[in-house]
Structures are given as structure tokens and as C-alpha cells.
Design a protein around this nucleic acid. Structure first.
Lengths: 145, 145
DNA sequence: TTCAATAATAGGAATTATTCCCATTTCGTA
DNA sequence: TACGAAATGGGAATAATTCCTATTATTGAA
């Protein structure tokens, strides 16, 4: 892959723009919903096909985080992510990847190491807030008994 | 969850035994194939249901590695894994998880951190071997031209 | 330009992994 | 042994993704 010639069709341009302006890293259906507002006739096949094409041409990368959906990232440099265990939101971690880890782990297994992934798990700000409100509501209910 | 009373039915016992004796950490369908040799009438629903039940009771853990399938691990202590990018095989990494990472990353994002996952990516021994053989075969083909 | 070859798209069917539903079976205990 | 609760098997439903195909758009040669 990675041939020069990537036809920048309207669909591909909008997909790329929406991934770039997304707060966090969207899944395929989040890309679809965003793009659909601008190109109402776009189809899910085009979303998936173009996401793959954009990956092949190094314009985006696919994040395989520990959940069932793929996430897409317009920043193609290697970096770590935080993932919300409640809503699935995926956000960048501003740290340089620890390249020495791969060398250090090389002797711990018989794999031919080609990379690593590090993922922080937690509650995103929005879900923390929802959690707190839920707890507050429960306290009121408990107190009323 | 995590109630005392877990009925150790024949199905559950065999599922647990097969996960324990598996080389690496099997997916649900690998568990199914293994268990089926001993209990030919077992159904996929039972596999999934019992895997979940065993998780709920802390007898196994589910590994959410960066791929579409869940893997199951009879070792419920936190640990890191290596995953083969070719065949998907998941194997333990004999290292203590770096607990300090979570504290260190806490200030890098606005998430309420509850854990982290580290995954080494590479080629497992079997896939390395297959790769080498494929390359050797290609060399012969090239030379014959 | 105009036309043919090529590439991309929309829409829907197919596939994969997983979950859900329900009638039947099994188990623990009264 | 018999009853009620829990577990099972089998298949339908769901979710994410991939595949297929007829139609549409684009490119570049005449």
C-alpha cells in the first residue's frame, strides 16, 4: 500500500476533516454520524472503505484499544491513549512512548517484538461527573428512607 | 457478583480445565473446540454464559486485548501479555505490572484512573517459523527466474 | 469535448463474534 | 421422589465489520 495516488474525493476529505476535528478518537459509526451531517447520502461502506484506504496511505491510523470497536486517529505518530471504561471515549496521553520497553521485554518471551501498546483505563471527565451526580441522587434517596 | 455459590457443573469444570491447560489464552471459540472434544453436546451459549459466570465469580479473567475477540485467562492476577499480530495468540509476560505508571500518568489527563494495560506485539514462535519458511520459498522462486 | 477505462460510491447482503430467549433438562433439597 | 430453582442446548437476534454489485464519477487519451 502507501502508493502516492490517493484520490481526495469529497467523501474522503470530509471523513478526514471530521476525524481531525473530533474531540477524542472516533469509532466508524461516530465518523459516519459526523460526516452524514455534511454528506447525507454517504454510506457506511464508504466510511469503512475510506477509513481503510486512508490508513493504507498513512493519513490516519487505526487504534486497536481493548474493546470491540476500532477507533481512528488523524495523528499517525505512535502514542499512548486513555480509554473511558464507561463510555469508551479514547483520548491522547501526552507522553513519549517508552521505546526501551520493547528491548527490555525482548528477553521475557520468544516473540519477535514489533511494537507495544499502553492504555490507561479510567473515567473520562463527563462520566466522572455523571457518576458523582448519580451518587448524590442515591444519597438523597437513602436519606429519605 | 462474586457470590459464594457457584455450582460446579460438568460443563463449567471442563471449561475451566481446558482454559487452564491451554497453551496461551484461548478465545471463546477455542474454548468451545477444546471442550467439545470432551462434551460433544455442549452449546456455544453455554460456553459464553459459563465464561461470564466464571468471570463474575473470579475464577477466570477476560482479556480485552487490541483485537476483536475476547481471550480468557485462568490466572486472575493482573499481568501483561504478548499478542501475535499474525495468529492472535496471547501469552503471558512474566513481569510485575508497573503500578507506578498509573500514578505517573494521573497528571497527564483528566481521567479518574483505575488501571492500565500493556501489550507487547510481535510474531509468536510458530508464526516466525512460518514466515522464515515463506521467505525461503520466495528466494527459491526468485532465483529460478 | 467526448469517450472509454478505471476508480469510487451507495446500498444491501453476508460474516463474525457475541448476546438473548425459551423450552427442556439437571440439581439440590424437602 | 418430587418440586422449584438453576443450568443447558439450540436457535434467533444484535452489533461491528466486510463483501458484493450495479451505478456514478473521474481521468486521460484521442
Amino acid at each position: 500500500m502507501q502508493n502516492q495516488e490517493l484520490r481526495m474525493t469529497r467523501q474522503r476529505r470530509v471523513i478526514l476533516e471530521e476525524i481531525r476535528s473530533f474531540d477524542g478518537h472516533p469509532t466508524a459509526d461516530e465518523v459516519y454520524e459526523a460526516v452524514r451531517k455534511r454528506l447525507p447520502r454517504i454510506s457506511m461502506s464508504t466510511i469503512y472503505r475510506d477509513l481503510e484506504t486512508l490508513c493504507d496511505h498513512g493519513r490516519i491510523q487505526v487504534l486497536e484499544v481493548g474493546c470491540s470497536k476500532k477507533h481512528f486517529d488523524a495523528d499517525t505518530k505512535d502514542h499512548y491513549h486513555a480509554r473511558c471504561i464507561r463510555c469508551g471515549r479514547v483520548t491522547n496521553l501526552p507522553v513519549q512512548p517508552f521505546s526501551y520497553l520493547e528491548q527490555a521485554f525482548r528477553d521475557l518471551c520468544d516473540y519477535k517484538v514489533v511494537g507495544h501498546r499502553l492504555e490507561l483505563l479510567g473515567l473520562c471527565p463527563a462520566c466522572q461527573k455523571a457518576e458523582e451526580e448519580r451518587e448524590a441522587a442515591e444519597d438523597i434517596t437513602d436519606a429519605a428512607k
